[in-house]
Every structure is written in C-alpha cells, then in structure tokens.
C-alpha cells in the first residue's frame, strides 16, 4: 500500500493524480450534502439550486512565474480562470467576481497597477464586474511576489457537469492545445526558447454561450483543460462518465511551435495547460451544429472533434496515433523539461 507523503510537494498542486488524491484524502472531509453539485463532485465549481435556477460558484487562486508572460499576465489569468470555470458549469453570464490579493513586501507598485489594469480589461471583455476584494501584505520571503484569488458567481438555467459523457458521444476541443503551458515553460527553467510561443489565456464565456445556444441539451460535458492539459480533462471525463475515450491524435490541433518546443523538451502537448480552451462533450447528432457555432466565434476558429466516447474500458483514455493505439497515462506531477 502506498503511504501518503508526510509533506506537501509540488506534485500535489499540479493537477494530476497526486493532487486528486490529496483532495480526496484531505479536503473531501469538508464536503456536506447540498441540493445540487457540491464539493464531493470535484467539478469546476458548485451549483446550488435557487428556485428554478442554479447559483454557480467557483474560486481559484493564481500564482504564475513569470507574472507577465507572452500573451498575458496573472491579472488576465485570474479573471479568465474564474469566468471559464463558471462557463464550464454552463453559467456564461457572471453576476460578479471578487478579487483577493496577497502581496509580498517590496512588490513593485507599477507591476501591481499593470496587473490590475489587465484584470479590468479582461473583466470588461467577459462582461464580468469585479464587485469586492481584499488585500494582504506579507513579509519579504513569506510569499512569492503576488497571489491572486478570484471567486465568481453566476445564475444558470441548466448546469453542465463534467460527468455527462456516454458511449457514442463526441469530444470537441475549441482550439489549439498546449499554448499557455508551453509559453510559460519557455520562460521558466531558463529554457530560453524565443519566438512565437504565446499563451491563449482568454475568457471563454462568450464562446461557450454560442456552443450551448447551438447544442442545447446535447452539450453534455464541459471542462477547461488547465493544469494536466487535455489528457487530464479526458481522464476526469472518462472516470466520471464511466466511458472509455479514444483520441484521434492526428486530429489534435497543435501549433507548429508548440509541437517543436514539446519535442525539444520532451513534453507532450496533451499534458500541457491551456487557459483559453474548452473540452466539450456533445451527442453525436449535434456535433456539427456545435462545431459550426464554435468556429464562427473568433476564439473557436480551429475547434475540432478530437475524441469519441466508447462503452469499452470505462475510465481509460486511449490514444489512436494513426499507427496503433496505446493507453494515455494520467498526467502526474509538475512538467519538467527532459533530455531523454
């Protein structure tokens, strides 16, 4: 039997198996029954029945190094992350967002102003008002630069969970994969990869609104592939929906530069974080309609069907490479550049 580690490691925050285990072992003790989707569902957020509608709540803390990166910054990330978590539950019209910030003593004021300006801009783009906040400052070395937490609330007519797949459903990704994580990684570990790598960080509620309008009840599962990437999301969808998922690798939209960077540092774009993409499960009969609606939106131009749910091997994610099939492992631990 595996003993849990006595201390928390970075792997416990990287969206893979270790993090799921920690949440199940420790945080699920907080769960109590709710009328709707609560903590025990481990979804993107909670949905509590209020009259004939659902109050959707989600919260997310953001730390990223560097805080300014190609394509975005921690401010845009914090607003997009929460707006997207709401959208993945089917709540595309945020009522309000909170903003709590923990700053390290000595943090440059100009950087803070730049981050806040970016939050303002992104909130406007998502039509998500920031309605309250909190500020703390900690001593030098007690926190690393800045930690941003945002919480969002919204009302939804219908909640989309991430557990709704059944055999025969198709899985769509709304655009190219791995862009955000690869852009961040190129700036970390001193990799010095220069060029066109650029984060996709963006609020997706407008895009998801179009998908829901086109697909209605046939949109059965949604999740944003952040930490753990598309592979992580598909593992969750397969486990919760009790289906197998077969990915058509040749259909995966990947930018040349992301593919090249991935080959250089030995990291599969399927495992890499996205901050402006959704993975959407649809009934096959509505796939074309949903795809057309996604592609008509500027953030969904390269949306494509990447996988099929099957009845065999529930919980497994299988990659069809065009040569043969193999099991796709669940992501685990922080992604590190490799030499071999």
């Amino acid at each position: 039997m595996e003993k849990p580690a006595a201390r928390i490691g970075l792997k416990h925050g990287s969206g893979g198996r270790a993090m799921r285990q920690l949440i199940e072992d420790v945080f699920l003790t907080l769960a109590s029954p709710v009328d709707g989707i609560g903590l025990s569902a481990l979804d993107d957020g909670a949905a509590i029945r209020v009259g004939d509608r659902w109050l959707v709540i989600t919260t997310d803390s953001h730390v990223v190094h560097p805080i300014f990166f190609p394509g975005g910054d921690i401010g845009r990330l914090s607003v997009s992350g929460t707006v997207n978590d709401l959208a993945m539950m089917g709540a595309t019209e945020p009522l309000g967002l909170t903003c709590a910030v923990v700053l390290e003593e000595g943090f440059p004021r100009a950087d803070l102003e730049r981050v806040v300006a970016s939050m303002r801009e992104t909130a406007r783009e998502a039509n998500a008002p920031i309605v309250t906040g909190d500020t703390k400052v900690m001593g030098k070395g007690e926190v690393d630069g800045i930690v941003l937490n945002t919480t969002g609330v919204a009302l939804a007519e219908r909640v989309v969970s991430d557990a709704g797949l059944r055999a025969g459903d198709l899985v769509i990704v709304t655009g190219t994969i791995g862009d955000h994580g690869m852009a961040i990684m190129s700036r970390r570990h001193d990799l010095r990869l220069e060029g066109d790598l650029c984060s996709d960080v963006a609020p997706l509620n407008g895009l998801v609104r179009e998908a829901l309008r086109a697909g209605g009840e046939d949109v059965v599962a949604m999740k944003d592939p952040t930490r753990g990437g598309v592979a992580g999301v598909l593992h969750e969808m397969a486990a919760k929906g009790k289906v197998g998922i077969v990915i058509d690798e040749t259909a995966l939209p990947v930018r040349d530069e992301v593919r090249a960077a991935g080959e250089m540092i030995g990291i599969d774009p399927l495992l890499v974080a996205n901050e402006g993409k959704a993975v959407i499960g649809v009934r096959a009969r509505s796939a074309d309609k949903v795809l057309a609606a996604l592609r008509a939106h500027p953030l969904g131009a390269s949306a494509t069907v990447i996988a099929t749910a099957i009845g065999e091997r529930p919980g497994a994610v299988i990659l069809d490479t065009g040569f043969g099939k193999r099991m796709l492992a669940e992501p685990e631990g922080e992604l590190l550049p490799r030499i071999c």
Binding site: S186, L191, R192, G195, D196, L197, A261, E263, M264
Partner: peptide
C-alpha cells in the same frame, strides 16, 4: 532545426517557429 545566425561558438537556430 535551421541555423539563422552564427556568433562565434553559438548559433541561433529555428525549430519550426521556436528559436534557441
């Protein structure tokens, strides 16, 4: 990757849109 520039013992190389 394709060599874009050379400076002594170091070269800038393009790997399909990523330079190193």
């Amino acid at each position: 990757g394709k060599v874009l520039a050379i400076d002594g013992m170091s070269a800038t190389v393009d790997f399909f849109g990523v330079r190193k």
